[in-house]
Amino acid sequence: MSDFIGIFLAVLLAILIAPHVQKHAGAILSGVTRINFVQRNGVLISTYLIVAVLTWTVVMIVLPQLYMMDYSFRHNLLPNDIGGPKDVHTLEHYRYLLFGRPGDVELMNWLHLKVFGRTILVSVLITLVDFALCYPIAYYMAQVAKGGKARLLVLCLILPFWVNEILRAFAFRILFGTGGVINVLLVGMGFVDEPIDFLKADVGLYAGLSYAYILLMIFPIYNAVESLDHNQVEAARDLGSPWWRIHYRVVMPHAKPGIASGCTMVFMLCAGALAAPQILGGPSSLWFTQIIYQWFNTGGNWPRGAAYAFVLLIICIVFVMAVMRVFNVRFGEIAK
């Protein structure tokens, strides 16, 4: 909340100050207006843009993260001790994630590491599933369907997302629960004798997560594929190419930036999801974010939560960078 007030004040300030700067400080002005960016957008608008973007990145993104990072290197102290002699930097929390409590029988903190590994692995799988589901839809919308049909499809894809995340997650519970629609159908039609506990097997979670980020996969790919000249697809076909090779050699290389940005977003958001695992996760399975949440919340250990969150963030970034490296995608491209 205070972030919001901060940015609001900064914007207000910018709007109030800018005309004064313009009026009084002629020398500054003539220097400033020589900057290309200012020339293009005018003094008022460029001031607003710079201040707004800086406020946004610094106040809302960089500062809190730095604060959290610092936090993750401190002991979890009682309020009285903060600022006192005990308040020193430490690797305690990172050590905890790796090795657990000192003196534990286990060498490593397998419980948390396993959850971590599983979170990453499942996120990768969900990203792959989403890609496999969305690529054909995106291709169809971008290259095959014409006008009205494509728009209808977009609408059908977007509308369900008006329902909020929590409600959607609970809907999946209803769908996949032991007394849920799917089980009723399966038992009713005699495919199985007993209802299957999909939620316990995490099927509900995987399905929920896959569905949650589908749009973030479709639209970047759609954008990228749409800019492909359809003649190239036809040229490849005319040269004798079967459909799969057209995609592999012509469409996908062209859509690579879109695919990369879709996959990155889905993977990151999936690994960082909280609501879906809370609602749809089986009783015995945890998502890494749930552990983080526990440290912050019931565990009352913010520094440890911060350390865990940082490890997740860093590993995700490293992983994404590595994958992009392998597929030869440059970072600038995914912003296109």
Binding site: A235, R237, G240
Partner: peptide, 14 residues
């Protein structure tokens, strides 16, 4: 088109 003994050169080359 991939099974015909023809090859097409497109208006915009492609």
């Amino acid at each position: 088109p991939n099974k015909r003994p023809t090859a097409l050169i497109f208006q915009n080359l492609a």
